[in-house]
Design a protein around this nucleic acid. Structure first.
Lengths: 129, 129, 129, 129
DNA sequence: GTGGTCTAGACCACA
DNA sequence: GTGGTCTAGACCACG
């Protein structure tokens, strides 16, 4: 589970954590019973205060996504069937549009943007499927 | 020019206005020289306070997207990107990486992500408004 | 760091704060990394509303002079001028012309103006605070 | 009488007109009985609305600096002795400081600033006294 | 404790 | 009519 924060988006960090964990569980890439990273570990990775991460975890527990077992860690609860592919693709529509717009603003469009993305995929070690 | 606020996203309303106006200029549905709705009018439409809309417009002016002429109104400015191509591409590296990670969370990778992006490009290019 | 407002100048208070902080960093009495007074404290000192001071600080952050860290405070940033020398000199042409004209109005010209400027340079260089 | 507006200073244009005319009369470069440019002429030169210039003139008349003779124009009233040299020099202290600070921000200081100013003086056709 | 955002309502400068 | 600034006081996110 690799979380990615965007400090310029305006969305508060604790909300970004909540939303990303929810997306991962909904898509099935985080399975029921799996453990989330300990609060202090995640706080270090994301360079956030522990209180902030704790708040995100508390919110996730409040929404029934995870279960907080004091002293043992946080675990994903069973959330039923993972989403179908269309639903998962729909989750990406908004962030993709945002990227296209931002690219347009620096006058990079169409295939040039696609090329750039492929380059970053290669660099992140994610070869074309 | 139809603005739509999402009060559940966690992103502050004034930021949503900024991002949507930027998107509209990028997509061509707002052209250079065109007038934006007056602050008071937009505030009424969106059921926001005048100051909140004013803050959004001020931010847009600060970013060089629009021009605020006291007494006359707010107008879309002419683009004009002085940076060299490498610099512009570099600006996109971070948001692209964020998207790739987010897509990974919902188990969409490689060429499947590329396909999705092409689809959104087509849809945005079809000319809104 | 002693800020002084002039309510008769016609210049808005938040702009006076911005200009004075910029002056202080330029003069070296505010060094990189140093903390500015908290918004609420400064607002009290200057008998301004908190929002007004916040606007000034936001503007300073936007100009890259300071860094506002929610929860920790506001800090002076490291300078770092990426523009080339010609570009920087060009930025001064307009304000210099304005000064020459203003001096002309009070019948101070040529070398007499230069002398006056040298005198102010000496005084500012003596290191305030 | 050459007026110079600075739209970025934050000081309202009508105040800049008032202050500059006051400075010129105080320094003696505008003498009693002399005519000010007609409102519509000045408005065109400064690219302001006539109302704005009219407001400045009205303020000047209110302060007893000028006299408005409807149909004939605006004239400077007798303001007694013009200021002594020290007083005139003092009027320039603040704008000079502002320039030095701004120059410092683009890392132009000392003699380099002096050189730049001399260059602008030459270009404005104002040879060293 | 810190800074960030929003509302409500006022006054000013400009066209 | 337009946008710009200020006040007052509220709530939120972060450390």
């Amino acid at each position: 589970m690799r979380l990615q924060l965007n400090f310029k988006s305006g969305k508060p960090p604790y909300r970004q954590i909540v939303d990303q964990v929810k997306a991962a569980t909904a898509a099935g890439s985080l399975r029921a019973g799996e453990a989330l990273p300990p609060i202090r570990t995640l706080a270090e990775q994301l360079r956030l205060n522990r209180n902030t991460v704790a708040k995100a975890y508390a919110e996730l527990e409040h929404q029934g996504i995870i279960e907080n077992a004091p002293g043992r860690g946080c675990f994903v609860r069973d959330g039923g069937q993972p989403l179908r592919k269309d639903a998962r693709r729909a989750l990406l529509a908004e962030p993709i549009d945002a990227l296209i717009v931002q690219a347009h603003h620096v006058q990079i469009q169409g295939e040039e943007l696609i090329d750039l993305i492929r380059e970053r995929q290669r660099r992140l070690g994610e070869g074309p499927s």
